[in-house]
C-alpha cells in the first residue's frame, strides 16, 4: 500500500499562476530566453482552451481496464474544481480588461500578441499594455483560488 493516500495530480490553478507570473516577469525585457518562448506557447494553448471552452481534465482508464466502482470520482472532483477555477479567473480577466468582447476575440487578440513576442517581432506598446493587464488580473484572480 502506498505511503501517501492522495493520487498526485498537477494543479491547473498553480500552473496557470506560474504561467501568468513567469510571462509577466519577462514582458518588456524578453532577451534570448528559451523559457519565455515556451511559457508563451503554453499560454497560447491555454487561450485555445478558453476560446473553445474545452476545460475538461478527465482522466480515463485504458479500454480494457476495470477498477472498483467510484475510484475515478474523487480525483476527478479535484480536477473539475481546479479547472473551473482557471476558467473563472480567465473570465474575470477577460471582463475586466476587454469588457463585452467575445472570448474568441480575446483569445485571437492575445494569441497574436504572444505569437509576436515568441518570434521576437515588434508589439505595439498599447497592445503590450493590454496583455500585461490581462495577465496581472489573471494572476491575482488565480492566486486567490489556490489553497
Amino acid at each position: 500500500m502506498a505511503i501517501h493516500s492522495l493520487e498526485r495530480r498537477s494543479d491547473p490553478r498553480v500552473v496557470c499562476g506560474l504561467l501568468a507570473s513567469s510571462v509577466l516577469k519577462r514582458l518588456g525585457h524578453p532577451g534570448k530566453d528559451e523559457d519565455f518562448a515556451v511559457f508563451l506557447r503554453n499560454l497560447i494553448r491555454l487561450l485555445e482552451l478558453y476560446r473553445f471552452g474545452t476545460f475538461s481534465e478527465h482522466k480515463h482508464r485504458g479500454i480494457l481496464q476495470r477498477g472498483p466502482l467510484g475510484a475515478n470520482k474523487s480525483s476527478d472532483s479535484f480536477s473539475s474544481e481546479a479547472m473551473s477555477a482557471v476558467k473563472d479567473a480567465l473570465e474575470q480577466a477577460h471582463k475586466e480588461v476587454f469588457g463585452d468582447q467575445s472570448s474568441e476575440y480575446v483569445a485571437n487578440y492575445l494569441t497574436g500578441i504572444f505569437e509576436s513576442l515568441e518570434t521576437g517581432q515588434h508589439v505595439e506598446p498599447d497592445d503590450l499594455e493590454l496583455a500585461r493587464r490581462f495577465l496581472e488580473v489573471l494572476n491575482v484572480r488565480i492566486q486567490a483560488q489556490i489553497r
Partner: peptide, 13 residues
C-alpha cells in the same frame, strides 16, 4: 492496451 495522455490540459513547460 492504453494511450497515456499526459495529465494536464494546462501546462507551463
Amino acid at each position: 492496451y492504453e494511450l497515456h495522455i499526459e495529465q494536464g490540459a494546462v501546462n507551463f513547460n
